[in-house]
Amino acid sequence: MPVPKSEFDDLRPLAFRDPSEVLDPDEMYTVYEIARLFQGLDPGTDVDPETEAILLDWTIPWMVYHADAFVFAEPASDADPGLYGLAVDGGGAETDSE
């Protein structure tokens, strides 16, 4: 059920951090690790499935919104998740050039 705003003493603007503030530019991460980092947790933190689902609910739209800031790598096998990292310039995919 909706809750009246008047019941809260502290209402803050919704603000998301830039991917470069969350990720190390030299690392690649699973979406699960990014979800933890996005919330200020260590990427190896153990969380219950319900919490993980909530973390992913916030992280996936954030990643889509900032898609130009990410690169991805295919998983080592079909059983492994893909890996994501920051694009070299933070604003587009890395490319090989001669």
Rank of each mutant, 00 (worst) to 15 (best):
D10P: 01
A79M: 07
I60G: 01
D89C: 09
D42F: 06
F70V: 04
V31C: 10
F72M: 09
F70D: 11
V31N: 14
D42A: 09
G90V: 04
E74Q: 09
G92R: 04
V3S: 04
G91I: 02
A35R: 02
D80K: 07
P81T: 03
L37I: 03
L86V: 00
P25V: 03
P61K: 05
W62S: 02
P81S: 00
E52H: 09
D80R: 02
M63S: 00
P2I: 13
K5I: 11
Y32G: 10
A53W: 00
A53S: 12
S6V: 15
P61Y: 07
P13S: 09
L83D: 01
E98P: 12
P43G: 05
Y84T: 05
A15K: 14
A69K: 07
T95L: 10
L11A: 07
D48N: 12
P4I: 01
A79P: 02
Y29R: 07
W58S: 05
P13C: 05
S97H: 12
D18N: 15
E33I: 00
E98G: 09
P81L: 02
Y65K: 15
L55A: 00
V22D: 10
D42W: 03
A76R: 11
L55S: 00
L55P: 05
Y65M: 11
A76H: 04
P81D: 10
E21A: 15
G85R: 06
V3T: 13
V3A: 10
T30G: 10
W58E: 14
I34S: 04
D42P: 09
D80F: 01
E50Y: 10
R17C: 13
M28R: 10
L55W: 00
G92I: 01
L37T: 00
P61T: 03
A35Y: 04
F70K: 02
V71R: 12
F70N: 08
S6A: 15
P19M: 00
T45Q: 13
A73L: 13
T59V: 00
V3G: 01
A93L: 08
G40I: 03
G92M: 02
D80G: 01
D18G: 03
T45C: 06
F38E: 14
S97M: 13
G85H: 06
V22G: 05
P61M: 07
A93Y: 07
D96T: 01
V3W: 04
E74W: 04
E27P: 02
F38N: 15
I54Y: 14
D80T: 05
D18R: 14
P4C: 05
R36D: 07
T45W: 06
K5L: 11
A79F: 09
A35D: 01
V3M: 06
P61C: 02
S97I: 12
A87S: 15
V22A: 13
E74F: 11
D78K: 11
E98C: 08
S6Q: 15
V47L: 12
E52K: 15
E94G: 13
P25G: 08
